[in-house]
């Protein structure tokens, strides 16, 4: 981390004028290391991970992948796997549309430069609450009530997306430049005009790129939802795995991977275009975007 100092200059009683090496950071590093090692040991203790298991696990995993080769596309195509993968994509799309449509107005109401605190704080907490429940759990409950099917999956994904999209969008709104809002105020504009002309043009490109990013995440989520009966490719994977038809499993996996990568590639290309469409260079905007996704700015 720091440039290595020759050992003979490190000993105590360094020549006059040279500061002692500070011990604070070293202690802090040691403490962090101990905490992580301790947490790891505690975690591992509960996982039934004997040495024998650890040693055989990679081999067991590899064996499964070996069994999948060569993948049996013919059977899977007969069983309509393409339709099932597409169904997952449909579910993800509708879920994202629902999430985007509901989160956008809520995000404005959750921002401190638009909305008073008695409206803002409850909506914020709502976002946090929604985000705390995984979409799969939401789907478990919805399926219990509405019955199996893709619509339950889309609803679950949409609901969960409201939480993340709402939070990210409102952070973007709060960090928008106040200047245009002041200009609208100075023209005698109302609240709605401040939002529509002062803030919306600034934040929309980034918010749309969040939507696209969420769609990428949702495609994976909806594939998983099939595993509990909410429509899509997950059900096919589960049933083939349960019957240990590994070549078919291989085919399902490869098709899923291909579709997911295809969608990721298109979506990220579109995202880059949307973000680059504004002022500022592409690279730094993407850095900001990723900073937003992990909850800090300018990273």
């Amino acid at each position: 981390m720091t440039a290595t100092v020759p050992p003979d200059e490190r000993h105590e009683g360094a020549p006059a004028g040279r500061p002692e090496r500070p011990v604070g950071p070293l202690v802090a590093r040691a403490v962090v290391f101990v905490i992580i090692a301790g947490a790891f040991a505690w975690g591992a203790s509960g996982l039934d991970a004997s040495w024998a298991r650890l040693r055989s696990a990679p081999g067991d995993g590899w064996a499964i992948f070996r069994l999948m080769w060569p993948p049996d596309f013919a059977t899977e195509l007969d069983r309509g796997v393409i339709g099932k993968v597409l169904e997952s994509v449909y579910i993800a799309w509708i879920g994202t549309i629902l999430g985007a449509a509901i989160s956008l107005p809520l995000a404005f109401l959750a921002s401190n430069n638009v909305s008073p605190s008695f409206i803002r704080l409850p909506i914020r907490q709502l976002f946090n609450a929604i985000r705390a429940v995984p979409e799969l759990i939401v789907a478990v409950i919805l399926i219990a009530i509405t019955g199996l099917g893709p619509w339950a999956g889309a609803l679950a994904i949409g609901l969960h997306s409201v939480g993340t999209l709402g939070k990210l969008s409102s952070e973007e709104i709060e960090s928008s430049d106040r200047g245009p809002v002041e200009a609208v105020e100075a023209c005698g504009g109302r609240w709605i005009s401040r939002v529509r002309w002062g803030i919306l043009p600034q934040v929309m490109p980034v918010i749309i790129s969040y939507w696209l990013f969420r769609f990428e995440v949702n495609v994976r989520a909806s594939a998983v939802l099939g595993m509990i009966g909410a429509g899509g490719v997950g059900a096919e994977l589960i049933s083939q795995l349960n019957f240990r038809n590994f070549p078919e499993v291989g085919a399902v996996l490869i098709i899923t991977i291909a579709v997911v990568i295809f969608i990721d590639t298109i979506s990220s290309a579109v995202r880059k275009r949307i973000i680059a469409g504004g002022a500022g260079d592409d690279q730094s905007r993407m850095a900001v975007l990723f900073g937003d996704l992990v909850g800090h700015r300018g990273g």
């Binding site: 245009p180 200009a183 043009p201 600034q202 929309m204 002022a279």
Partner: peptide, 10 residues
């Protein structure tokens, strides 16, 4: 305004 305060993306 000193900083123009335009909605730059429109």
């Amino acid at each position: 305004f000193q900083t123009f305060n335009l909605a730059e993306r429109t």
